[in-house]
């Protein structure tokens, strides 16, 4: 079975990540003042940084960084879960008075704005394709790299623009602006493609 890491580094990285997140949870839960929490925050930062280093050192940075992030994710959720289960015997405290952002929002009236969703998706898609075309022609790198990077960036552009269109107050104006920008990008791509010059 293939192995890529020294087990001792992996275990140490996991322990450091878990310790770092637990220290952060301790600091946040502490009732003492801000300045007195500082050592806990420092300890947390040191342990997390140690976990990052040990992951990269033990597994190589390619595998080490994703594994470190996975350790932090599991440690974070695990700490939250452990704290919650640890409150078993305690009397239930009243819920915090703060309300979540979602609760502050007036609830949707039940009718989904499908037309607005479809419009945002389509306009966002058009813009993202225009961005893909122009990036694959204009990014300052060799052609295969341009195409590859533009393909990876394309869903991020589509998501960003769709969300912006969805959340925008001035619906018509933002759609028109996006369509205009898309046509400009298509135009730039066409000029670059037809001129045959390097980006």
């Amino acid at each position: 079975m293939e192995t890529i890491a020294s087990p001792i580094f992996v275990i140490a990285a996991l322990a450091a990540s878990l310790g770092g997140v637990a220290a952060l949870a301790g600091a946040r839960a502490s009732s003492v003042g801000g300045a007195r929490r500082l050592p806990l925050y420092l300890l947390s930062a040191t342990l997390v940084a140690g976990g990052f280093y040990l992951s990269g050192r033990g597994m190589g940075w390619d595998a080490g960084i994703p594994v470190f992030l996975a350790f932090i994710m599991l440690a974070g959720f695990g700490t939250a879960l452990a704290r919650s289960l640890g409150e078993r015997g305690k009397a239930a405290r009243p819920a915090p008075l703060r309300r979540s952002a979602v609760d502050e929002v007036r609830r949707a009236d039940g009718v989904l704005s499908l037309r607005r969703s479809a419009m945002s998706l389509l306009t966002g898609f058009l813009f993202s394709v225009a961005a893909l075309f122009s990036l694959s022609l204009l990014l300052p790198m060799e052609p295969a790299g341009r195409a590859a990077l533009a393909t990876v960036l394309w869903p991020i552009v589509w998501t960003g623009i769709t969300l912006w269109l969805f959340a925008s107050g001035a619906v018509l104006r933002s759609h028109l602006l996006t369509l205009l920008a898309a046509f400009v990008l298509f135009g730039l791509a066409a000029i670059s493609f037809l001129s045959g010059g390097e980006g």
Partner: peptide, 16 residues
Amino acid sequence: FIGVFLLAAAFLSFRG
């Protein structure tokens, strides 16, 4: 979408 967009992007970046 790799089958569509990577090909399209590569076709453009290699100028056809």
